[in-house]
């Protein structure tokens, strides 16, 4: 009788450990604000990128204002616990050497304009990059095909 109870109690130990482990989140929960930031900034960023056939000087203020918003979105996700994957995505997006939005602003400024083929290709890449950020955020809530 005593041995049987002891054996059952031992069998419960893995369950109890699992319950304790279940308390620590593996990844941050879904954030509506992060999702909205990403979707609205995608539209704003792609629209401004499409203006790069015109001299940078004509759009410098708009680019600076948008960079502040992009940076704020990055800081927002970086400030959430267990959110390092999303934070890393935003860091790459805004990095001036990262080949995405951050580098596009730098190339536009350096050359004053961006050629039509490069503009088209980069708009596609930055759009796809935003989709990855949006997809990850959506999947934190539930399984979502992106």
């Amino acid at each position: 009788m005593v041995a049987s109870c002891f054996s059952r109690a031992r069998a419960l130990v893995p369950c109890l450990l699992l319950f304790l482990a279940a308390c620590a989140p593996l990844i941050a929960g879904y954030s509506l604000e992060a999702y909205r930031n990403a979707t609205s900034l995608k539209a704003e960023t792609l629209a401004l990128m499409a203006e790069a056939g015109e001299p940078y000087a004509q759009h410098e203020d708009e680019v600076k204002a948008l960079k502040v918003k992009l940076s704020a979105a990055q800081e927002f996700v970086a400030g959430m616990a267990n959110n390092s994957l999303s934070a890393e995505q935003w860091t790459i997006m805004n990095d001036p050497d990262g080949g995405l939005a951050g580098e596009y602003w730098a190339v536009w400024e350096a050359q004053q304009t961006v050629s039509a083929p490069a503009m088209g290709a980069q708009i596609q890449q930055v759009g796809a990059a935003f989709d990855e950020i949006i997809c990850l955020e959506a999947n934190k809530e539930k399984d979502t095909a992106c």
């Binding site: 990844i27 994957l85 995505q89 080949g99 580098e103 050359q111 890449q125 950020i133 999947n139």
Partner: peptide
């Protein structure tokens, strides 16, 4: 300069995709 940006972008896009795949698996 534009070519370099596009190639860097392709590499970064792959990283963003890998981060998304990892995140989706963690959420799952």
């Amino acid at each position: 300069l534009e070519f370099t940006m596009l190639v860097n972008g392709a590499k970064s896009l792959l990283k963003l995709r890998a981060l998304r795949v990892a995140g989706v698996q963690l959420a799952r």
